[in-house]
Design a protein around this nucleic acid. Sequence first.
DNA 1: GATCGACTTGAACACCTGTACAGTGCAAAC
DNA 2: GTTTGCACTGTACAGGTGTTCAAGTCGATC
Lengths: 198, 198
Amino acid sequence: MRSASARSARDAIAVSALSLFGQQGIDATSLREVAAAAGVSPALVVHHFGGKDGLLAATDEAALKAFGSAYGSDQGPGTPAELLDRRAEQTARVMREHPDLCAYLGRALVERTPGATRLFGAMIEGGRKEIDALAERGALRADVDRLWATLQHFFLIWAPLSFMPLLDDALDGRLLDAENLDRWVSANAELLERGIYR
Amino acid sequence: MRSASARSARDAIAVSALSLFGQQGIDATSLREVAAAAGVSPALVVHHFGGKDGLLAATDEAALKAFGSAYGSDQGPGTPAELLDRRAEQTARVMREHPDLCAYLGRALVERTPGATRLFGAMIEGGRKEIDALAERGALRADVDRLWATLQHFFLIWAPLSFMPLLDDALDGRLLDAENLDRWVSANAELLERGIYR
DNA sequence: GATCGACTTGAACACCTGTACAGTGCAAAC
DNA sequence: GTTTGCACTGTACAGGTGTTCAAGTCGATC
């Protein structure tokens, strides 16, 4: 079948691109490497995606879409504490189940991919809204700097994705392994709830 | 004078390299760009530094040395609270006075430069020692995960350097401007001392 | 004043990059 | 059975990369 083969070749390229971009960085990965990993000629990548820019744009868009549907927004009711718990659980699940997506996003954020720039904006905007919602429900200390509280959430939760290779050395095992993920998430919860000094 | 000119050309190359590597990224900056910015031929860069790897190694080493002497270690006595205050002030001063050094380190950390990898190791090791010292003096909550507390310090304090272009958009003005620096530092102190939820 | 040695350069190199293009093979449409 | 359309490839090209090398400049040394 033509269409099935076409779909599979195109998908293979997209999968290889996401993986290699995430592992090696986007600038450091050539079209030829992506094509070789997908078992395909470099010209086919150009044919399907129009060039490296197009491939990057498609990877960006696919990653954002996948991230959006995997992460989503929390609509459920409950106390602020329950909401924060669900959010933490949700975050850990995304990271556990989609490690190459996370590796790609970590790279894309520091290489300032168009999609990652949008993602960052959305994270800050969405994060700010949740901070404000928490404040309205009295779950936030009154004197916190809300903009910086939003950024702190980003640094504690998402920024580590951009340092995975370094962290994998500092930790036993990979950052996204279940055990490290658990310690990470609960350390963040502790810090945000109570601080660490006394 | 020969030696003065030599010193100045070599230094000009080193300065341009630190600046361009910090602004554009290391991979994304060519030898020719560095040479042009220094007002010098590409071959001279090779002559003085042996090649791009040598230039990167020299930049790495110079950056680490400059960072080490600007940041240093805190030997002073005082209560844990005083020590933390001095540390915060010291950090803010380094960032205020050495913005291109900070930009370079932020880039080097995510591009996994050999020197930055060492720096990361030193930061984690040194940070862990300070955490342990704080714990011994009773300044740390007893149940904190000390490894992750160390990493959280890194993410809150140093990781933002790797996201400067994104942050400069999200903030009014640059991250390392005095005003933003103040808000950042005090937000971190608040978070680490008390958390932000209630 | 000739010699030496370091700094500096322009021209070339081999290599890799993204990309264009003509052509091939094959399933579907007529 | 011919034609059409699309996936797919090999080859080639222009541009940029790091690097080499012979040559030039010029102050210091004898």
